[in-house]
């Protein structure tokens, strides 16, 4: 029950959204996140979007790991 999964907002109707994750469609309450738009990625947990996923930070994390790995090749 405690898993949260990344999901993409397809459409929004009031405080409810249809989101897609892993090929399935779910409903997600948008009551506890701000400024959600179709196309945004959110974390879906027990029927609620609990946080927006930051595209920028996601790219940055991958960049840091790759940089770490590259520094390894230099050793």
């Amino acid at each position: 029950m405690c898993l949260s999964i990344p999901a993409r907002i397809l459409s929004i109707n009031g405080k409810m959204a249809e989101v897609s994750a892993g090929g399935s469609i779910f409903k997600a309450g948008l009551h506890i996140i701000e400024d959600a738009r179709p196309g945004d990625y959110i974390l879906l947990h027990a029927g609620f979007a609990i946080q927006k996923i930051s595209e920028e930070e996601a790219v940055e994390t991958l960049r840091i790991i790759e940089e770490m790995n590259n520094s390894l090749n230099d050793i």
């Binding site: 009551h31 506890i32 609620f48």
Partner: peptide, 30 residues
């Protein structure tokens, strides 16, 4: 979701709907 439990309550006014709320800080805001 707790939202679904609330829906069941709305659809069954003659019944008493009990939602066992477990979970940590992630689940409790819902």
């Amino acid at each position: 979701s707790a939202l679904e439990a609330l829906e069941i309550a709305k659809l069954n006014p003659e019944k008493k709907i009990v939602f066992p709320g477990i979970g940590f800080e992630t689940t409790a805001p819902g």
